[in-house]
Design a protein around this nucleic acid. Structure first.
Lengths: 153, 153
DNA sequence: TAAATATGCGACCAGTCAGGTCGGGATTAC
DNA sequence: GTAATCCCGACCTGACTGGTCGCATATTTA
């Protein structure tokens, strides 16, 4: 499995959409939802969450809507996903309260934590601006902090 | 979120356990479950799955149990996780039937698929033998196929 | 100022799924 | 033949995801 939620997908799509239309003063949740055919009210909640963490700026009222509050180069996939899905933990143990019952006996926690970090780095290496690139420019992003998996310590 | 299931955790723990005791002729599901305090019946099902895909070999009857069917160096975390959790898809769309409704409009699928591959590579770079290393030898595994995230193509 | 359009937010609901249990059948050692 | 073990499908339950509803608030415009 290891999949992220549909909400995160929607969030990424919306952010990309906003980035591509940075010139447009403000786009409403409805606009974006219609563009992709996703439930407007659901997307609304997602956008609200992204606004709350400061990735988007919002404007209520007529002709209101959302806009990126930072440049597309300054926002990573990691930012978006974490804002929506919460902190990502590859081990189900780490998902809250002081570890699972096996905290003591679990022997694969530590190595997996490292894997977790690697994945985070991969996601952090992807900027929203990367998502927007026209298909022509097939850039290859070498994930900046080279992926290391350090085991046993 | 983006976490793998508890079952996968258990599976990894069990495989590690078996690798560390390769000398022991055969270890039962009960043995392993008790060692870690995990539900025996649940672990049993997990081990059966791992057997089915050929990672473990089983032996019924008294003094029966499980053993790795390959050397610990020949089994990766990816193998174990995929056997238990199924193919890993970071996008919730890819999780089955011919993509979601948005297959056409979804614009982040392709980039995320690349992320998916990167994560797979990370997991493939982790061998069971790596999990077993005594804490002393703090090896650093440079994930072999250098992680590339190629976008827009 | 009233209407229309937006965001903000909490409550709620239904379906899915992960984690776990139960029970019965087949194998093998002693 | 009996005990230990693997094998396997059915089932249950609680949590969570995806989605909806309704209301309050903000802002523009006529």
């Amino acid at each position: 499995m290891l999949r992220l939620t549909k909400k995160a997908d929607y969030g990424l799509m919306a952010v990309k959409f906003l980035a591509e239309r940075a010139d447009t003063p403000s786009l409403s949740a409805k606009d974006i939802a219609e563009a992709y055919g996703i439930p407007p009210q659901l997307l609304a909640k997602i956008l609200q969450r992204l606004t709350k963490v400061g990735l988007l700026s919002s404007h209520a009222g007529m002709n209101g809507g959302y806009a990126l509050s930072r440049a597309p180069e300054e926002i990573t996939a990691f930012d978006v996903i974490r804002a929506i899905d919460g902190p990502l933990f590859i081990t189900s143990c780490d998902a809250r309260p002081r570890g699972c019952d096996l905290t003591d006996s679990c022997t694969v926690r530590e190595p997996l934590r490292k894997v977790n970090e690697s994945i985070s780095e991969v996601l952090k290496a992807i900027r929203v601006s990367d998502l927007c690139e026209p298909e022509a420019s097939r850039r290859v992003v070498r994930s900046k902090p080279e992926i290391l998996v350090s085991l046993g310590g």
